[in-house]
Design a protein around this nucleic acid. Structure first.
Lengths: 181, 181
DNA sequence: GATTGTTTCATACATGTGATTGAATCATTC
DNA sequence: GAATGATTCAATCACATGTATGAAACAATC
């Protein structure tokens, strides 16, 4: 708190005065930054008109990766989010409600359409989760990936490539799961 | 450190005497526990003789999930590992070398075989990473998943089901990626 | 059984941390 | 411009943390 206030040019007591305690400040910062980030890369980022379900899946994956991997000044945000997922604080509940649930609902709709109406719901759910898993992986395992000698996409071009990669893989997976049984 | 020593029935100074400092103790504990865990669920867990590549992929995924999700007394280990991946300490380098590299090499071999010899190396790599991503997801996003109202597999039966799920999805993805281009 | 090397222990030290307080400063309104 | 409410500030409190120390207990060897 001392360091935060020093860098902000404010007094330590300001945090308590304006937010009550440290955790409230943390929550406020996280929520605010996350909203900005979603606004910057919405889940229909770069989508053409009359998109196919495949188009929408690609856009979802691409915007997800841009949010997660883009090496802008907000790298700390995704680190915080990842930490929050692994070891939740009081901030997570709200973030899940306001951010992650709506986003996942969109993805679920897309995957549901790709699976077809007769696909069992647990299969649709699992396929949607598989997509999210792949998108999160490159951030969450970033340090392991680099230590293994592999590259984590950073530039827009690389990220597009990865988005295509994940989309193609997932479409294959969805078809395989939707077909069998 | 005070609490650790109290629970261990030892004196605080014992940590400094035997390990030098807190971080060294941490590293020793992590490494030891991880080795035990891999020994308990090796990557060829329950594999029949003369296995196909599909069999080996399933065994890899299944053992991975057992390690990651099994609700034994070692839940703390995977929490530590996840934290270590997200925000590495001095422990990670060694863990990557001794544990994760060898494991990934095995998976890479399996996926490479499934992709076929003429598949470009970056595709093989990406597919193998997609498999890892799906396995890690259910642990790393555990708290988000439950907050979304979904279930995280815990029992052996559920874990087997998830392993089949991930294997089928991944085989579909691998085939799709291996075919196109 | 004295000596020597190892391990354990209670205690202390220095520092970092989040929160609080009461005075001082600023802004607004009458 | 006095009064009132909001904000800022320096200083302090209470406590947690990792580490260090020197004495005591223990073990092994001669």
């Amino acid at each position: 708190m001392r360091e935060i206030c020093q860098r902000a040019g404010a007094n330590v007591a300001a945090i308590n005065y304006h937010f009550g305690d440290k955790e409230s400040l943390y929550r406020a910062v996280l929520e605010n930054a996350l909203e900005e980030m979603i606004a910057e890369y919405p889940p229909d980022y770069g989508l053409p008109k009359d998109p196919t379900a495949e188009d929408r899946l690609y856009a979802f994956v691409h915007s997800f990766l841009l949010r997660v991997l883009t090496g802008s000044k907000r790298t700390w945000l995704m680190r915080m989010m990842t930490r929050e997922m692994v070891e939740p604080t009081s901030a997570l509940d709200r973030l899940v409600e306001t951010v992650q649930k709506p986003l996942f609902r969109i993805l679920h709709g897309i995957v549901s359409e790709l699976c077809g109406v007769e696909a069992p719901p647990e299969v649709v759910l699992a396929c949607a989760q598989a997509v999210v898993a792949q998108c999160l992986f490159y951030k969450q395992a970033e340090h392991v990936i680099t230590r293994m000698g592999h590259r984590v996409p950073k530039s827009p071009v690389e990220i597009e490539g990865l988005a295509r990669q994940i989309t193609a893989f997932s479409l294959g997976g969805i078809r395989a799961r939707a077909v069998m049984r």
